[in-house]
Simulated assay, not measured.
Amino acid sequence: MAEVLERDVAGRRAVLGVLAGMPAEDGAGVKLSRVIGQPRLDMLDPFLMLDSFKSDRPGDYIAGFPPHPHRGFETVTYLLHGRMRHEDSVGNAGVIETGGIQWMTAGRGIEHSEMPEQRDGLLWGFQLWVNLPASDKMTAPRYQEFDAEAIPVERRADGTTVKVITGRTREGTEGPVRDVAVAPLYFDVTVPPGGRYVEDLPEGHNAFLYGIDGTLLVQGPDGGETAVAKERLAVLDRGPTLAASVGPEGARFLLVAGRPLGEPVARHGPFVMNTREELLQAFQDYQSGRFLG
């Protein structure tokens, strides 16, 4: 235990800033909160966008996300509650259910739809956009999709649970999503009341926390503690260790990290490339039907 605490103090990550999402609409009018991809945080390389959606009002989500194209990046849909049907231009189809994850690599181009498969009740989840390096932007599209039962949950001695979607925890649990260019971590963490969470992170990775429930305390830029409440995103600085504590109500949060690409980004709507010329080509290819499949 002493060794853990020494490593924690020596290299723990601090919170650089905390922000709330902005109300937004996407698809055919789905109401959501845009957390990354807004004026206060345009991107956090390699993460281009993070949307949070949560509503038990069908009018907020029922119209869904009808067919739309993507090129040059990956979309990650994680459902905490509800059902979402997806179909695409190359014949893939399926349903993401409560606790499930879909990691779609759009690559050179795909057109897909994501439509709620429920007429009422709670729909709650996240969509994260992850950039691809220039060398992978024209790769073939692919999916990695796993239901809740296929995603390992690490149970620590103090009652903390870590649902591991991708990456590897300090205790050795590895998620089922593999072979992603930016070597990401994507953990759904629940810490019991009064608990403490320590995790190793690759030092060069950019990372953030997103509060789902409760409040966690993380070192701030001045050396004191910064509170990260639910529906708030905290950007972390770089270092080998994250250490967080929680109050008497406990906390649940996402921990996401990825290797920054450091490449130029040319983006507009559903396409993310490296140059304006590549972006224009993406629109031309889509309009002429050349990029699908």
Rank of each mutant, 00 (worst) to 15 (best):
I110E: 04
M138K: 07
S52A: 14
G72E: 02
P67A: 13
I96M: 06
E87G: 11
F53M: 15
K137W: 08
G125P: 00
Q127D: 04
T105A: 06
A134K: 10
A106F: 07
Y143P: 05
S52C: 10
D120S: 13
D45R: 14
M115S: 07
T77G: 03
L48K: 04
G91E: 12
D88T: 08
T105P: 00
G91W: 05
G121W: 08
E111A: 13
H86E: 06
V90M: 14
R142A: 12
V76G: 00
S135C: 01
K54Q: 12
I62Q: 09
G82N: 01
D60A: 13
G125L: 00
F53C: 02
F47E: 02
S55H: 11
E97C: 09
Q127K: 14
M138Y: 14
G59N: 11
G109Y: 04
S113M: 08
M49P: 01
N131M: 03
I110A: 05
S55M: 10
A134T: 05
P58L: 15
L50D: 01
Y61E: 01
A134H: 07
Y143I: 03
N92K: 10
P69D: 08
A106G: 04
D56C: 07
E117D: 12
D88A: 13
Y61H: 08
D120W: 06
D60Q: 15
H68I: 05
